[in-house]
Design a protein around this nucleic acid. Structure first.
Lengths: 120, 120
DNA sequence: GCCTTGGTTAGACATCTGTCAATGTAGAAG
DNA sequence: CTTCTACATTGACAGATGTCTAACCAAGGC
């Protein structure tokens, strides 16, 4: 089996308790987990997600950390490249927002996830 | 690790879309995400979870990788220390199994929570 | 006792990662 | 055009991480 293309095979999958991940699926998913595997990035993500309007500019975020601007910028880039967030420039500021489908994918893999409404 | 004050404060939390994680929660959770942030470990986890009986010995696992025994052992240790799996020796073999509550905790944080109230 | 098999531990080493200071860029405001 | 603010990129560096080989421990079987 497993003639996986970038379709469902590779991106969506039953929980790990179902059948084992292929090497490709694991590589793919672990890249996102890795991005979340840093306290700063995980907090950045949650700050963005929880911010009013579902988006936040860097200026809203950097105040929560004792880190330099470039470091925050670096972490945001990692999250962006992992597909966890997107950034859009509006005027002087850059607004970030979460990409829910990426997080849902992880959630689905991890577990018996709370019954999600909108089908698979 | 083990006995942290398991008041819901630190261990359980609403999805990131709810309210931002505290620094401690983020540190705690990111450690587990980090453990899953490696293709080999993620596949190990899924192989264990999907194995018959919910457990697998190292001999069942190492065949799936082009890695030395010690390397597999190292990854299993990382997963164990992150609280994702446990290992138990029975006779000659060591059997590993998944700790579902850890995975569920991650899933809960990531999850868009069943459409409760879309307050934001 | 002595091997053999299954697995972990200990070092060693190259690569990756998080951080910062310095510099660069995009837009707004004089 | 110049300058200021908001962010990003570059380059450097210490520390973490993944991998290996070699050595070690545990359980059986001879």
């Amino acid at each position: 089996m497993s003639n996986q293309e970038r379709g469902n095979e590779r991106w969506c999958c039953s929980p790990v308790t179902g059948e084992p991940l292929s090497a490709e699926q694991a590589t793919d998913l672990s890249a996102v987990f890795k991005a979340l595997g840093d306290p700063v990035r995980l907090r950045l993500l949650s700050l963005i997600a929880a911010h009013a309007g579902g988006e936040a500019c860097v200026c809203d975020l950097s105040g929560a950390f004792d880190l330099s601007g470039p470091t925050i910028s670096h972490h945001l880039k990692v999250l962006r490249e992992a597909g966890a967030i997107t950034g859009e420039r509006r005027g002087t500021w850059v607004y970030y927002r979460v990409l829910p489908e990426t997080l849902q994918r992880l959630s689905a893999v991890l577990g018996p996830a709370p019954a999600v409404s909108t089908s698979a």
